[in-house]
Amino acid sequence: MQALTIVPGKKESLELRDIAAPADDEGSVLVEGLAVGLCGTDVEIIDAQYGEAPEGSSFLVLGHENIGRVLEAPSGSDLSAGDLVVGIVRRPDPVPCKACAAGEWDMCRNGGYTEHGIKGLHGFAREQWRADPEALVRLDQSLADVGVLLEPTTIVAKAWEQIDRIGARAFFDPQVAVVTGAGPVGLLAALLGVQRGLEVHVFDRVTDGPKPGLVRDLGAIYHTDTLTDSGVKADVLLECTGVASVVIEVMTCGATDAIACLTGVSSTGKTTSVDVGAMNRQAVLGNQVVFGSVNANRRHYEAAVKALGKADASWLGRLITRRVPLAQFGDAFKRDAGDVKVVLQIKTP
């Protein structure tokens, strides 16, 4: 069968290759791959910035954002042939640490976890794959066209859960939310904010293309100025770009008692001048919280399923701006000005 692969640590190694069918010991459920979404993580792995092949393999199958259809499932598993499923990306470390043992593998403490298509496990950009039932989340058939958005939705589902938990430390009645970045994660973060009944402001540099319309049709407010210049003071801020200057704004432009969640991963090696004393004074006197969030556990996948189920299906469909057949994978990685989410189509749902 065909799979999209790279050789970890080797640039320009991206290729479509024939590989063996998934071994039975990879999981008791056989899944037909339907699609994978592409994101910056895939680009960085292709660029040999990181990525780790499974033990005994010289290559890594790409793809962590995924959707598939069950071909075979064991009796008593609550799964049946024909079910739509998404594979959970991160798997707990084998020790396990206390967090992984508690099912909170997104908070792994020793770094021994594995991740499909990223670290130590083959990804989902292949015609068939296997997983155990507990590593799969079932989707309603109505989400067949947009279920590939589930994994990025889990990232912001976790972020919002953590915001709610932190807010519960004291009086918490958020009214205004800011999201920086109108990429897929930012738009999905805004979706969950609107679903919570908040006034949502989304900041991005793009002035044309689909992003402004997607934000407006969500019922949120689109900005092309900076958060500083806008004067918006939010109770909740979600940073989804990783751009250092934007991160600083998110950390310094919140309202009293604001909670800021950082989800964008920044590049390193560049310096930015900042008045740390002023930032500290504002955070302390304003009872503000800044925290980072990455990955998701099963609870967040289940929350994301509910969020997508409540969303307007046509709006979700507009996030997917290009679908590229697996055989033409090279075209998928050629950036188009109008791209929001690009999907590699392995098979029609």
Rank of each mutant, 00 (worst) to 15 (best):
P152A: 11
G193M: 07
T226C: 07
P174Q: 12
G209L: 00
W160E: 10
F172L: 03
A177N: 07
A168H: 03
Q195G: 10
I163D: 08
P210Y: 05
G209F: 03
R165I: 08
D225W: 02
T226A: 11
L149W: 00
R138H: 07
A144C: 02
G193P: 04
V236M: 11
G231S: 02
D204Q: 04
L218I: 03
Q162N: 14
L192K: 14
F203D: 14
I166K: 00
L238F: 04
A168E: 05
E161G: 11
D164L: 13
D204I: 01
L238V: 15
D217P: 10
I221Y: 13
R138D: 05
E161Q: 15
A220R: 06
R169V: 05
L149K: 00
E161A: 15
G193C: 06
I166E: 01
V148T: 00
D217H: 12
F171A: 15
G181A: 08
G219F: 05
L187T: 14
G167M: 04
R216A: 15
T154D: 00
A168M: 03
L218F: 05
E151C: 02
T228W: 12
D204S: 05
D217Q: 13
L139A: 01
T226L: 05
L188S: 02
Y222S: 01
S230Q: 11
V200P: 00
Q141I: 12
V206M: 12
K158Y: 13
R138S: 12
L218D: 04
G209I: 01
I155N: 14
V185W: 09
L191P: 08
A190P: 01
H223S: 09
D173L: 15
L191A: 09
G193H: 02
T180S: 13
G147K: 06
D217R: 13
V206R: 10
V202K: 09
L238G: 08
R138Y: 07
A144R: 04
I166P: 00
D235Y: 09
T154F: 02
V179R: 06
K233D: 10
L191Q: 07
R216V: 03
L143M: 04
T224Y: 02
F203E: 13
T153Q: 12
V185G: 01
T224E: 02
E151N: 06
A168N: 02
A190D: 00
G181P: 00
T153M: 12
T154V: 03
W160P: 02
P212E: 10
A157D: 10
V202W: 04
V206I: 14
W160N: 07
H201Q: 07
G147A: 05
V176C: 12
Y222L: 07
V202Q: 11
V176T: 07
S142M: 12
I166C: 01
W160C: 01
E151H: 05
L187W: 14
G231H: 04
V202L: 10
A220S: 13
I155G: 13
S230C: 11
D140M: 00
V179L: 08
T154G: 02
V156I: 13
P152L: 09
L238N: 05
G186W: 11
